[in-house]
Computed example of a mutant assay.
Amino acid sequence: MTGLFYAAAMALLVTVALALVRAWKGPGTIDRIMAAQLVGTGVIGVALTLGAARGDATMLDAALVATLLAALAVAAFVASRAPRGARKDGEDRS
């Protein structure tokens, strides 16, 4: 069964390598941030897969922290790309 986990981890690493190429050569900023998000997700998947293969529960904690950091990075990117004055305080959000 651990061989299956290692094969899955290798497949995820190939996906991460392809996403790194896209992040490096991406035509636009949005393509690059999406590739960076894919890299983060792939690394989290590798950490969880290898943690399951080794029976190491501490990898779950590291993967959860990485998940929160990846979500925070995308939220910061979206906030930085919003046009100035797009929404003022007190306006209707609907």
Rank of each mutant, 00 (worst) to 15 (best):
A17E: 02
R54L: 08
L68G: 11
A11G: 09
G28Y: 09
S80R: 15
A70I: 00
A75F: 13
G51Y: 00
D92T: 12
G40Q: 01
R32Y: 10
A86L: 13
A62R: 08
P27T: 07
G26H: 04
V46P: 00
S94L: 12
L48W: 00
R22K: 11
L48Y: 03
R93G: 06
K88S: 14
E91F: 07
A47I: 10
T29V: 15
A11E: 12
A63W: 01
L72H: 14
V16L: 04
V74P: 00
R22N: 06
G40V: 03
L69T: 04
I33T: 09
G42W: 01
A19Q: 04
P83K: 15
M1N: 07
T58P: 04
D92H: 13
Y6F: 09
Q37D: 15
D31H: 09
L60V: 06
A36H: 04
A17T: 12
T49Q: 03
V16N: 00
G90S: 06
L18M: 13
A53F: 05
L13P: 01
L38Y: 03
F77M: 12
V39D: 03
S94R: 15
A75H: 05
V21S: 08
A8C: 05
T58Q: 09
L69Y: 05
T15W: 13
G28D: 13
A36C: 10
A86D: 12
T15A: 14
L38I: 08
V39R: 01
G3Y: 02
A73H: 05
A11S: 07
G42P: 00
K88I: 10
A62T: 08
T58K: 10
R84A: 15
D89A: 11
M1S: 12
A17R: 08
K88P: 12
L12H: 02
A7N: 06
L60W: 10
L48P: 00
S80Q: 13
V16P: 01
A79F: 15
V43H: 00
T67R: 01
R84N: 08
R84Q: 15
K88H: 15
R54N: 03
A36Y: 13
D31I: 06
T29D: 15
A35P: 05
D56F: 08
A63S: 03
D61R: 05
L69C: 10
F77E: 06
A19E: 07
A82H: 11
G28N: 14
I44D: 04
L12R: 02
G3E: 07
T41M: 09
P27V: 01
F77H: 14
P27A: 02
R93A: 12
A47T: 06
A52K: 10
V43R: 00
D92V: 15
A76Q: 06
L64V: 11
D89I: 11
S94T: 14
K25R: 13
K88T: 14
A23V: 09
D56A: 07
T49V: 04
G55C: 06
V14L: 05
V74W: 09
A23G: 02
A19H: 01
L68F: 08
G42D: 01
I30S: 14
F5H: 05
A23S: 09
A62C: 02
R87F: 14
V74R: 04
L68D: 09
A73C: 04
A11M: 06
L18Y: 08
W24S: 11
R32V: 14
A36K: 09
T67V: 07
V65W: 07
V46A: 00
V46I: 05
R32K: 13
M59D: 06
A71P: 00
L18H: 05
V16A: 06
K25L: 11
W24F: 13
T49A: 07
V46L: 01
